[in-house]
Amino acid sequence: MIWHELLGIWLAAGFTLAIYSFLYKDNPAYKLAEHIYVGVSTGYLICIAYWEVIDKKVIAALGQHEWIVIIPTLMGLAMFTRFSKKASWVSRIPLAFIIGYTAGVAAPNNIQGLLIEHSYATINPVLTAGFAPQLNAIIMLLGVTCGMIYFFFSVERKGPIKVAARLGIFFLMIYFGVAYGYMVMGRESILIGRLNFLILDWIKPTLAAIGRLFGG
């Protein structure tokens, strides 16, 4: 193993343990690791933003006399006027452009991609699929309808509306349970990733190296 890889592994192991030491109690090692993490992340983002955006998409374009990039560059720079109380109004111009552009582009695409296609996919299987998928589709349609009724607050909750809203809560709870289960799995995966690293990339090779050193 090359020395800089070895150094990287030891540093990563040290920082991992420093971060996990917070589980015992807050301590200077955790604080140090946390601050270094924040600093490195920010530095990395700034470097990527410079080399991938400013250098490649602005400086290189200007070098090829593509003067049009001056407009978005100025609009981007105008965002920094928010730091000044007097000039902060300038930042509203690019913000207005972003909001206008995003709303204009997003509205038709989202209506088609989320509302229409998902509504179709909810209703259509009820009409076309076989018995078992049809049963699934009916339960799903019921869940969607009752869930929507639960979030409809303009009608007093009594009679069938109350029953549907209660059923809506039932479906929502199932969704929250599933989502929470997946979230726990995700968090466990991060822990497992670190344990994998500590055991397989750090402890085992280190023990093997010590064994070799002492003639094992």
């Binding site: 991609g113 296609e117 998902h118 179709y120 996919a121 909810t122 799903m140 969704y175 599933v178 989502a179 997946y182 979230m183 799995m185 995700g186 995966s189």
Partner: peptide
């Protein structure tokens, strides 16, 4: 996708997106 995001992706699978 990550496990956290998986539940949110099922409507897209249902819609064959």
């Amino acid at each position: 996708c990550t496990a956290i995001l998986a539940t949110g992706m099922y409507p897209f699978l249902q819609a064959e997106q």
